[in-house]
Design a protein around this nucleic acid. Structure first.
Lengths: 158, 158
DNA sequence: TCTGTTTGGTTGACGTTTCAACCACTTACT
DNA sequence: AGTAAGTGGTTGAAACGTCAACCAAACAGA
């Protein structure tokens, strides 16, 4: 039996500096990427993420729940997002043949071409705002950390 | 005159993996921290950030615009957030004496004690979800990157 | 087969963020 | 002093996300 600390693990000055930089950086970065997409292509980051997954899937089609898991959004959120995208003619819904409850989202041709254009904007943003500011080794460290964060918060469900 | 690349700087496979880990990790991490605060203390992350800044300021009081800049939120957002917190008795508004337009937000005693409790929850989350998953060197790399991201996106306005 | 439970997905109400428009005060210029 | 431009802050509506309740299909066990 391992002893688990019960009192609060306050951050030291350095940890606090880094945590605040992280928080501020994430806010500013996501805001900028979102605004770029929104003003130039009428898409939000959330919508864009979903379109990327769809475009990569066989048949450009994915089940709703799978989509939600892939982008780490709630099922409800994905339902709403897909409804909006459907209204815009960017995706369609299709009944799933194997599972009577199931619904798949499908990227339309129009949607695909919207995505193709938006991708330029998005990738340039990621590159210029983030990657340009991250030496290769630091960037790798970032990846290691975030992969572990995901593992922690997706496994541990008890 | 430096040549600036005009075509899209597509990410290689490794960069893409890291970028997606970042996106997913941020989503999952922020969601969890937010939910922790919300269920245990009735505060959102955004509200919490603001309370932290107020608690550290001389007189537990900061001008609205300064507050917005400190947490990287829009002025409008801060107005709404402060209104909500005011309704809950956690902050108060005060006219600024030096500048007739100015308004300061002020943390109440009640607000301070709400914050004191919430801080335990929040810090434990940051520690367990993030810092625990980040070796010291990697964590330092994270800090370097995010500080540069902030500098890039706050300076470069042209 | 009947029943209880789990999973997939949607819905509507509510809370939060954004956006654009706006008012009021301050500052700089002439 | 008078006016144009900038800054501080608020407002209300629209867009978005969350939450809890819900329905329907699938599954597991008697």
């Amino acid at each position: 039996m391992t002893k688990i600390s019960t009192d609060t693990p306050w951050l030291d000055a350095e940890q606090q500096r880094i945590w605040r930089a992280f928080l501020g950086g994430v806010t500013v970065l996501m805001d900028q990427l979102d605004r770029d997409l929104r003003t130039k292509h009428g898409l939000s980051m959330g919508e864009y993420e979903i379109l990327v997954r769809l475009s990569e899937a066989p048949g450009r089609s994915i089940r709703m729940a799978e989509l939600a898991a892939a982008v780490s959004h709630s099922r409800s959120r994905v339902t709403h997002t897909i409804s909006r995208l459907e209204r815009a003619g960017i995706v369609e819904r299709a009944q799933c043949s194997e599972d009577g409850r199931g619904v798949s989202a499908l990227l339309t041709d129009h949607g695909f071409s919207v995505l193709e254009e938006a991708a330029h904007t998005h990738v340039r943003g990621v590159h210029d705002y983030l990657i340009e500011n991250a030496p290769t080794d630091d960037f790798a460290a970032l990846g290691r950390i975030m992969e572990r964060v995901i593992a922690t918060l997706n496994g541990q469900r008890f």
